[in-house]
């Protein structure tokens, strides 16, 4: 499989990299993420670790308390290394800036599905691209 580049819009932060966690559904950080343990309850209810990952998913939903959950992930040393979404809403922007997690938007649902087949990602803030590596 070839390396792939996706054009994104950087909303916050510097370049970052990590293993890919591509999640097909919207995420409510309040309720679905446990910041103390750094896990998200995945489909089929298995727990997926967020720590150091490049988290790629469509969008956030639910309570504004979600911003606090992102901050708590950083506080407990469990923050993802970057977050890439289709469209960033205020709840996510607030949380990402407060927790200083690099944030970008602009991936469509097809790229999210595709990203799940790659292993590692680099969010390049200078060039505004998300690079996927097998």
């Amino acid at each position: 499989m070839q390396e792939k580049e996706i054009k994104v819009k950087i909303i916050h932060g510097k370049s970052a990299e990590g293993d890919i966690l591509a999640y097909p559904n919207p995420i409510s950080f309040l309720g679905e993420v446990d910041p103390k343990r750094g896990v998200i309850l995945g489909i089929g209810r298995e727990e997926l670790s967020l720590r150091g990952k490049v988290l790629i998913f469509p969008n956030t939903r639910g309570s504004t308390v979600g911003s606090y959950v992102l901050y708590a992930l950083r506080y407990y040393g469990n923050a993802p290394s970057a977050i890439v979404v289709s469209k960033a809403e205020p709840i996510l922007i607030v949380g990402a800036v407060l927790a200083d997690i690099p944030l970008a938007e602009g991936v469509d649902s097809k790229s999210i599905e595709e990203a799940s087949k790659f292993k590692k990602a680099v969010l390049d803030a200078e060039r505004s691209v998300l690079r996927l590596f097998p």
């Binding site: 309040l30 910041p35 309570s63 308390v65 606090y68 959950v69 901050y71 708590a72 506080y75 407060l98």
Partner: peptide
Amino acid sequence: SGLSYMTIGDAGLTFLKS
């Protein structure tokens, strides 16, 4: 708004304390 422990839980408490 959002200052009841019932709604913001430990994540909110952690944030506000910090």
